[in-house]
Write a protein that binds this DNA or RNA. Sequence first.
DNA 1: TATTGTTATACTCTATAACTATA
DNA 2: TATAGTTATAGAGTATAACAATA
Lengths: 145, 145
Amino acid sequence: MDVTLLDRLLQIGELFQRDMARAFAGTGFTPARLRVLWVLQHDGAMTQQALAAELDVTPRNVSGLVDALEASGHVHRAPHPSDRRAVLVELTPRTARIMSRMQREHAELSATLLDAVAPADRAAVERGIGAIADRLAALVEDADA
Amino acid sequence: MDVTLLDRLLQIGELFQRDMARAFAGTGFTPARLRVLWVLQHDGAMTQQALAAELDVTPRNVSGLVDALEASGHVHRAPHPSDRRAVLVELTPRTARIMSRMQREHAELSATLLDAVAPADRAAVERGIGAIADRLAALVEDADA
DNA sequence: TATTGTTATACTCTATAACTATA
DNA sequence: TATAGTTATAGAGTATAACAATA
């Protein structure tokens, strides 16, 4: 049976997960906690409600993740300036530096992968992967409705 | 900041997971159990040790997954013909039919996604994604060593 | 001695429901 | 009355370590 495009894309997804898991094994970073840090790095400090919405996860779940990240010194709960019910979750300076480094490595990996593609194919591959991602996003959205 | 190739590939991986989770919500199929069924459909009946190796998970974990799938009637533990320590885990006939249908849908989705790519770009995209998957596999393997 | 699978234990991620404090 | 976050409880996935049965 031959290998479809979809098989290849699923394989790429699994390899990313394997790579991430291995890269952070023993550091206390788990995939779920990394997602929190990634969102905070990308969008800045936010409330737990906002985090829950961004991660598509329950507020209760966010409480647990932020508890763990606060205990390990990676994030800080600051009072919200205008709403005493809410807290602002922010990266600690040291963790912000770690995430900046990850962002650079992320860009390098992207370049390395594109480098594996024959130069004549690169433009088509970038267009094609964009089109696939858009089509898949539309399918998932339709299914949700 | 612009969207890299890597961002798109990560997005595709997340969309697949979201879609799978949604498609099987309420059916009792969880992602981990589906992986077991998928391997059995693909490679046929095998011991729990073999499953553990294939899934890259501990034998203890396989015990739990097979327990759950046996309780729900999706797999069956048969005695191993020559090794009384081992069991052969096999799909029940009904589940084998379900997995065949999934395999067909999988092929259809692959066709739908390729259809989203401009015809002139298709060959390059298939080559390029293959090259990316191979490069990534090599990187992960190097890191493991 | 080595291998197959299980029991025992523990941690993480996730969810729902009920509750407190604040808006 | 509605919203932000937590406590309580539960289930799934995962791991390590110790053990029984068999090879």
